[in-house]
């Protein structure tokens, strides 16, 4: 049985690994697959591994829970600015809503994003959490 959302499944590996697109003409990187560079219009776009650390650029706490998350509880959605300047929209986990701050260092996490149903496919992907570990070298 194929999942009801084949597009989500096809994009799974990009979502698992936080792969992005990089324009070989102007160097602009962005999240997700692209055929055309949003900055310069070039069609020379390659898939790249985005950095796994960054800082919180802006955030909001979601209290009005969507139907599929009705028992999840409030959660933090943020725009994370990665080390190379790429901005990613992501949930922030392992952090209480009152503790999130702009500029807070965060790192890539691998989490459950949702599920089709109790009997269906589980969707996994990237989220960010407060930095646990900073490379010493």
């Amino acid at each position: 049985m194929m999942p009801k959302s084949p597009r989500i499944w096809q994009l799974a590996e990009r979502r698992y690994r936080l792969l992005g697109s990089r324009c070989t003409a102007c160097g602009k990187t962005s999240v997700g697959p692209r055929n055309v560079c949003p900055a310069c219009g070039s069609e020379d776009v390659e898939t790249v591994q985005l950095p796994s650390t960054g800082t919180v650029y802006s955030y909001t706490v979601v209290h009005a829970l969507p139907a599929e998350r009705e028992r999840y509880g409030p959660y933090i959605m943020a725009i994370v600015e990665l080390e190379d300047g790429t901005r990613v929209t992501s949930e922030i986990v392992d952090c209480e809503p009152e503790d999130v701050k702009i500029g807070m260092p965060v790192e890539l996490a691998f989490r459950v994003i949702g599920q089709e149903s109790e009997e269906g496919i589980i969707y996994y992907g990237y989220k960010f959490r407060p930095l646990v570990f900073r490379k010493t070298n």
Binding site: Y72, V93, D94, V112, I113, I122
Partner: peptide
Amino acid sequence: GRDEDQVT
């Protein structure tokens, strides 16, 4: 956590 399981 609420969004963690054996796979994560």
